[in-house]
């Protein structure tokens, strides 16, 4: 992405939301916003796409359950079938707990990993971009702008320009 943007800082959540609404209705694109906590209804406000975390979670769960059952069936009945306590080698009932736990593990791993990957979160020594200025006690709105110093932006605030 290349272009210019405006970072506008607010002291309260309400001000941020108000400014975002104004920016949006004026036809400017909201790139993102930064806040010390989650703001309810933000994705709708910023026209963000639906999260894919849920799908990753579901896929992980299915993978875990199917993988777990396959692992158990294969090791018990195919790889080396053994007579254990007179039970059949494919003792399905006994496979349920492990398959269930692996399903939960897969789903959790799917959700957690997809969250980290989609959010580009990973350990780094040098914090990128906004890291140093991310205000842990303020609210920042990032708006895409066509040119430098677009004074028609309908917000009043402490603002500064950034270039991507």
């Amino acid at each position: 992405m290349s272009g210019h943007g405006l970072l506008a800082t607010f002291e309260t959540e309400a001000a941020l939301v108000e400014a975002a609404r104004a920016v949006d209705s004026a036809g400017h694109a909201i790139v993102d916003a930064y806040a010390p906590y989650s703001i309810e209804g933000w994705p709708a406000l910023a026209h963000a796409e639906a999260s894919r975390v849920g799908w990753a979670c579901l896929s992980g769960g299915v993978l875990g359950a199917v993988g777990g059952l396959t692992l158990q069936a294969w090791t018990s009945a195919v790889s080396w079938p053994l007579d254990i306590g007179g039970k059949p080698v494919l003792a399905w009932l006994a496979f349920i707990p492990v398959a269930f736990e692996l399903m939960v593990l897969g789903a959790a791993a799917g959700a957690g990993l997809s969250f980290l990957i989609l959010s580009r979160l990973r350990p780094r020594w040098r914090q990128p971009g906004l890291r140093d200025t991310w205000p842990h006690d303020r609210f920042v709105l990032e708006v895409a702008a066509a040119g430098k110093c677009d004074s028609k932006l309908p917000i009043r605030c402490c603002a500064r320009w950034v270039r991507w």
Binding site: Y34, Y37, G112
Partner: peptide, 28 residues
């Protein structure tokens, strides 16, 4: 702490995704 924060910058997109992830994990 910076290393441990994985580069968290308080983006509200991330926050939204974060809340969803937490909800899913809570269910699990």
């Amino acid at each position: 702490f910076g290393l441990l924060s994985l580069g968290w910058n308080g983006s509200l997109r991330t926050w939204a995704r974060y809340e969803r992830t937490c909800l899913l994990l809570a269910g699990l």
